[in-house]
Design a protein around this nucleic acid. Structure first.
Lengths: 157, 157
DNA sequence: ATAATACTTGACTAAAACAGTAAGCCTTGT
DNA sequence: ACAAGGCTTACTGTTTTAGTCAAGTATTAT
């Protein structure tokens, strides 16, 4: 398994989307602000998420992204594999040519580990994350901060 | 969890050591040849493995490395943490400052995943790997190749 | 003693991956 | 028409990886 910020950002952004489900299309600019992720980077990630059918896009003004399915039907493993090319701890990438075109001594170990991680993440949906204790708090905080910022702007502060 | 070739090489080398347990100290040069790992790189890895007490070294001619404990008392997780600084999938490295000094939305997820991986690898010993189907085959192949090579040398081929 | 063998340390480096920017195009609501 | 938004590609600075190299320190067979 190869976990990069790409995968983390993707899951975070998808979770943000899940929290704002029902508010119509959410713009990447909003997510970028709330989650502190570069807009251009998000665009790249969502391009892949869309191709994998995890989100739907609405173009034009008022557009944005919406989850393609309910939050309890979208699993973390899918999100990560959508943006990370490899979900793999092996050197050979699933093949058996780890050492001089043959299987290396620890080949099966890494294979099994990859499976283990994948299974773990396959069992967790966005909805599961949403109901976790603590997560709503954070989500609320992030929304409040936006409101605070808006008030500051209104006040000219 | 951060799995690099460092961790993989370390486990592979330790497993090699386990297979040649009882033959006295094994030189890194031997392991390097059998496992196709650069000698200098192995030296770095074994320096850490020794400091963590996973192997003992014997210096001087005829020296080499030996497992400090029986193979069934050495767990994969130990080996990996010995050579990889971080065993962590989070951005904050165990802290809670992932986003603007507060915990990010997916903080707990990555924390739990790290634990999951660690637990998995904590449960597997070198001995467990040795008795796996297929692994002995590979080990034998690697030894045979060395013998073949020796024969070639003797024959002047 | 000394040569041979082995381990130790640290500096250095090429290549890849990561994380992000930049720039421009396409679509569509108003 | 035009602006808000998505879509796509190319590019780039930085960090990490995966080593190499060189010099040195220990141990021991002879």
């Amino acid at each position: 398994m190869k976990l990069t910020t790409k995968g983390r950002y993707a899951v975070t952004a998808m979770l943000d989307l899940a929290f704002h489900f029902g508010e119509g299309p959410i713009t990447l600019a909003d997510i970028a602000k709330r989650q502190d992720i570069s807009l251009s980077y998000l665009e790249q990630l969502f391009s892949r998420l869309r191709r994998r059918g995890l989100v739907s896009s609405v173009r034009g003004p008022g557009g944005g992204y919406v989850l393609s399915r309910d939050a309890d039907q979208i699993y973390i493993a899918e999100v990560i594999t959508a943006v990370d090319e490899k979900v793999d701890t092996t050197r050979c990438g699933g093949g058996t040519n780890c050492q001089k075109n043959e299987r290396c001594l620890t080949h099966d170990l890494w294979n099994d580990l990859s499976d283990q991680i994948y299974d773990y993440l396959s069992d967790i949906s966005l909805h599961d994350l949403m109901v976790r204790r603590g997560v709503q708090q954070v989500a609320r905080r992030q929304d409040d901060q936006r409101v605070d910022a808006a008030i500051h702007v209104v006040n000219g502060a």
